[in-house]
Nucleic acid binder design. Structure first.
Lengths: 245, 245
DNA sequence: AAGTCGCCTTGACGCAAATCAATTTGGGAG
DNA sequence: CTCCCAAATTGATTTGCGTCAAGGCGACTT
């Protein structure tokens, strides 16, 4: 029997899911057919508002979504960047704790929450896999905390570029090649929200890294990295652990 | 049969565990007797070094431990504060990603990792409960990210005090009384590492909050809060969600 | 072609927090 | 009690990043 929960290719899903997939011929999962559905969102659209009732969980199929938190006076901090295969939602909690916004056009594969929860309760592997993913996210969040709390603006930018490069590489299963290049999926403002900076500082530091030859730009969204080790050094990373999220 | 995994009082544990407990008369858990043990650590002692092989998981029984990350040049960021009942370790990963240090004297209740992992694989409830705890921690980490990225020094201090007050209240199951007071379990330097500040700034902001009547100090580790709402306002918290960690 | 709009860059200036540098406090040992 | 020393406070100064402001660069529309 086919492994039915981890990295499964669904019939009509463009990517291999890390989450539960309904297309597998397992009895207990068959009924999921009825509780699985797709939703599309346009760039800029809000997928979930913080505080909203959430009756589904799901994973990103394509596009990029972001988790953000906003203070009353408008200060905003991104607290999660959701790439394809990332999981959204919380079994066991009924309201969303953060805003989820589509950064690019997004397709999500959703499962109604209640049946998903019973599935978790009955299928140890699913809960286990979900636990593993959540622990990975927690590790990533903690790396991110070091970035926010202690790194300089320049280090933050270098870190962000290497994080995106690393995740993109992981997604396409290719190892770091000689001269790798990355498309930044975020505006300067979104990068600023990610890094706890202002957009002006982001722009300045990117210019500085360009001037110093750490990166080169084609357009203002595409970055080439001539020397990845140089970039990592600028990022102040000792841990080169290729963590997801 | 007694509920055997969540909030159980162990025979010889001083507190009610949120994690798995070996003292319950359940067949599948009986063997855990042999794989559960206690370890004590003195204040300041390192429990686990980042990168070390970790062959156990466990939960804090008494005392306070902290999870920290350090850059080569010595900049340090706390990324987790472990109070009694908090879980340490990662089923599914063999090396520790962060330093764990005993902030006060600490007693930990440990389980050898391998048998614990098989337990998780075989007992859905355990994985489920662990997932729930990890998701709570992730939510807390994300609140923390907002703090690190966007709050001012004064807001950070006010947030820290209210977080500690909230957690202490949760631990003792008492609701916020009129004039609540908190023992800060951290030195100024540890607070600074928690908040992404320097110890001087921490000291200055505590003095400022005292001068403005938001808090009063008895000694320099004990804080009284005359008006909790005032403090929360200073903290810039809209979400008053009583999250753990 | 000209106009508009979103996004980005660059400059000038100010301020919050870091850094550097003394003291002061207070708890524990003798 | 007095000494000692880590922890905390407070002051003076510097600086990195935020803020405010002006202008540039494509990509669309008309």
């Amino acid at each position: 029997m086919q492994d039915h929960f981890v990295h499964v290719q669904c019939g009509d899903c463009p990517i291999r899911h890390r989450a539960v997939c309904a297309r597998c011929d397992t009895d207990e999962l068959a009924e999921l057919e009825q509780i699985k559905y797709y939703r599309s969102f346009q760039a800029g659209q809000t997928i979930i508002w913080s505080g909203d009732r959430m009756d589904f969980v799901g994973s990103v199929v394509s596009g990029i979504a972001s988790l953000t938190q906003t203070m009353e006076d408008g200060r905003r901090q991104m607290v999660g960047l959701l790439l394809p295969s990332d999981f959204v939602g919380r079994p066991g909690r009924s309201t969303a704790a953060f805003d989820v916004t589509a950064t690019t056009d997004v397709v999500m594969c959703c499962f109604r929450k209640k049946p998903f929860e019973t599935l978790i309760a009955e299928t140890p592997h699913v809960a286990q896999r979900l636990l593993e993913m959540t622990l990975d996210e927690l590790d990533a969040a903690r790396e991110w905390m070091l970035l926010l709390g202690r790194k300089t603006a320049r280090e933050k930018i270098a870190s962000l570029i290497s994080i995106i490069a690393r995740r993109e590489a992981a997604l396409h299963k290719k190892k770091a090649s000689g001269n790798l290049s990355v498309d930044l999926p975020l505006t300067r403002e979104e990068m600023a929200d990610y890094l706890g900076l202002t957009l002006e500082t982001v722009s300045r530091q990117i210019s500085a890294l360009k001037k110093d030859g750490v990166i080169t730009l084609e357009g203002n969204r595409h970055v080439s990295i001539p020397d990845i080790d140089r970039l990592l050094e600028e990022a102040g990373d000792d841990t080169d652990g290729g963590l997801p999220v």
